[in-house]
Computed example of a mutant assay.
Amino acid sequence: MPSAPEDVTATGAIRNRFDRMEVAGAFGDLGTLIPFVIAYLGVLKMDPLGVLLSFGIAMIACGVHYRTPIPVQPMKAVGAIAATQAAQSITLTSAMVHGASLVTGVIWLLLGLTGAARRVASLVKRPIVMGIVLGLGFGFMIEGARMMASNWWVGGAALLGTALLMSNRVVPAMLVLLVAGAIYGLLSDATLWSALQAVRPQLRWPELALSSISLDDLLMGAVFLALPQVPLTLGNAIIAITEENNRLFPQRRVNEGQMAVSTGLMNLLSGGLGGVPMCHGAGGMAGHVRFGARTGGAVVILGVVLIVTALFFSGSVGTLLRLFPTSILGVILFLTGAQLALGGCDISRDKGERFVTVVTAALAVWNVGIAFVVGVAAYALAKRGLLRL
């Protein structure tokens, strides 16, 4: 059980903490956050002010409300599609990404408020959920290994050292990893130190993006970005995160309807401020918890860091991100995946249900949306005795 007794009030509610372990756990999701932020800023030339400010506000709201490390992440399918299509000169723009956020917000807010999200989730049985969680964990580990491959000596040494520090409650493993990564980044990039010396705080206020979004932007964002993400969001950001939170924090349970509503609200916020589509994710929670987070304080801390960066250092974000080498981010992602996969190892003794879990997990490494559909179909066939195993 990750929550220590002192984290619980007399009424049984979890209190947010802001100690060194929460600070360390706050950065446990950087392996997914930073690569997608870089893609949005580098390929689509989006304003980092709106992107980081939206994430920061959403994180603080989730940390204060849920009081567990409920993460706020970029929607992965949307990010991948946007970056790829832009690289292929297809006319996807920042305004279309903002439009996709607004459409996504409306979709999930309606699904949450009407109860449709919970009804759909109730049809997804535990073997399917375990398969999604297990597959996501393996997917994170594979991607982490690929990122570490950019410099195996550094990545391997960082992985071993971080793993040895994982159980140490005095020296937070994440803080050691980030400091070591920053030092390596400075030593391996001769221009980084001089670039950091030129960084100066400069206050910028956000501008509403609504005036720049046309009807065409909404339609293109919906068709090419928002709708392809829906099955992935349902599997990972609604069903899997609910399972992960309730397994780790039974004192502070959530349901699929709550996850759908908060997904809707934070995407409406993001679309209005010039941000990107966001979601919750079981992998993000696993990352926060793996590196020490036990309350929503970790998410609040990361949110404050992002808001300060957005308002005062948005013009220097590219330089600041260079402090975190790809191999170090790969270590974070690999260990996050391991934590998540461990949560998906509660496999049924029934052979048919085990088959459903294994098939769903294998497909979830590739595409969670397809894994979700195939898992539901396989479960139905197994229960009707139509699968000969």
Rank of each mutant, 00 (worst) to 15 (best):
L134Q: 00
V103A: 10
M96A: 08
V64R: 13
P127I: 13
V72A: 07
R67K: 15
M148E: 03
G79D: 04
L134T: 02
E143F: 03
L123W: 08
H98S: 10
A86T: 11
Q73S: 09
L111P: 03
R67G: 03
M148P: 00
F138C: 14
S122A: 08
R119A: 10
F138A: 14
M141D: 11
T104G: 12
W108S: 02
A95Y: 11
W108T: 00
V72H: 03
R118L: 00
L111R: 05
M130C: 12
V124A: 04
M147R: 10
A145M: 12
L123E: 08
E143H: 09
R67S: 01
E143V: 09
S122C: 02
I90G: 10
T91C: 09
T91D: 12
L113P: 03
R67I: 07
A77F: 03
F138T: 11
S89F: 15
V72E: 05
W152K: 08
I90V: 15
A86F: 04
Y66P: 07
T68A: 07
Q88I: 08
S89H: 15
T93F: 05
M130K: 08
A83G: 06
G144P: 08
V129R: 01
M130I: 11
F138R: 05
T68V: 15
G105S: 03
G135M: 03
S94P: 05
G135Y: 02
W152E: 12
G144R: 04
I107T: 05
P74E: 04
R67W: 01
T84Y: 14
